[in-house]
Amino acid sequence: MISTLCQKLRILKRASDSMEVVFGIDVKKDNTAKHSYVLVSKMNLPHNGIVHRGRGFSKTGLLMNLLGVIFMKGNCTTEEDILDFLGKMNIYAGKRHFIFGEPKKLITQDLVQMKYLEYQQVPGNDPACYELLWGPRAHAEASKMRVLEFLARINHLDPSAFHFGYEEALKDEEERAQASGCPSVPPAVPSTPSEAEANSAL
């Protein structure tokens, strides 16, 4: 009986981890009902992250990954770096993905139009080179700490393992708290893996 319960919990954990990485959805226990869980999106994307209303899958997980890469690259990264990162996830420009569709269009058009990303040409480059930054809606609906915690969780690390990113995220949390007039409470810092592990996760 106990072993069966443990096995079910392990399956639920693996499923919830996969849903977090792919769809940006947390599986949380519903305190109002016994043995019941609810799905909570990590961001407030319209239509639960479905870019084209009525069809497709949520893009929230991919967006959280993209925001994480941009943040860890110094808040701005090249289109080439983003495409290289996607290649590690077996997602390729020009090749339709069964969940995310055509990734380059999603990133450089759809998410830009929704103001989650900014896509701009880098001046003085021939041939033309483009870079990506957080858009205004990403700044409004996510925080650097929230994105860092997402990256840390999917890579089985503590956020403070991303040393420089963690310091910037803490500063961002303090600035947000001051702007809102609420006192900031720094997150607890448990023992951390090495920064080399954190860097290799990206």
Rank of each mutant, 00 (worst) to 15 (best):
E149L: 08
L67S: 09
S3M: 12
A142M: 08
N31I: 07
A161I: 03
V27K: 03
M89I: 00
A142I: 02
A152D: 01
A201M: 05
N44S: 11
W134T: 06
G49L: 02
T78A: 06
G49C: 03
M1P: 13
M145D: 05
L106V: 00
H35W: 11
Y116M: 02
S184I: 08
A177D: 02
F57N: 03
N75M: 11
A138N: 07
L117Y: 01
A198C: 08
S194A: 14
G68I: 00
A152T: 03
L148A: 05
S143P: 09
R96D: 08
H163Y: 12
V27A: 07
N44L: 09
I154G: 05
M19N: 15
P187S: 02
Q178E: 15
G61L: 04
G49P: 03
P123K: 12
F162W: 05
L170H: 04
G74P: 07
E174Q: 10
Q7I: 08
L9Y: 11
P46S: 13
V69M: 08
G24I: 05
Y92K: 06
S18H: 13
S200M: 13
P190F: 02
L39C: 12
D17I: 12
A188G: 10
H139M: 09
M64P: 02
H139L: 14
D158Y: 15
D172E: 15
L5A: 12
G124E: 09
S184D: 12
C6L: 14
P136N: 10
E141G: 06
C182M: 10
N65K: 11
A201Y: 02
S200K: 14
I25R: 06
L5Q: 10
L86H: 03
K105A: 00
A33N: 09
L5R: 14
H47T: 07
I82E: 03
G87K: 06
H47I: 05
W134D: 07
F71L: 05
I2H: 13
T32K: 13
A198H: 09
G61F: 01
H163L: 09
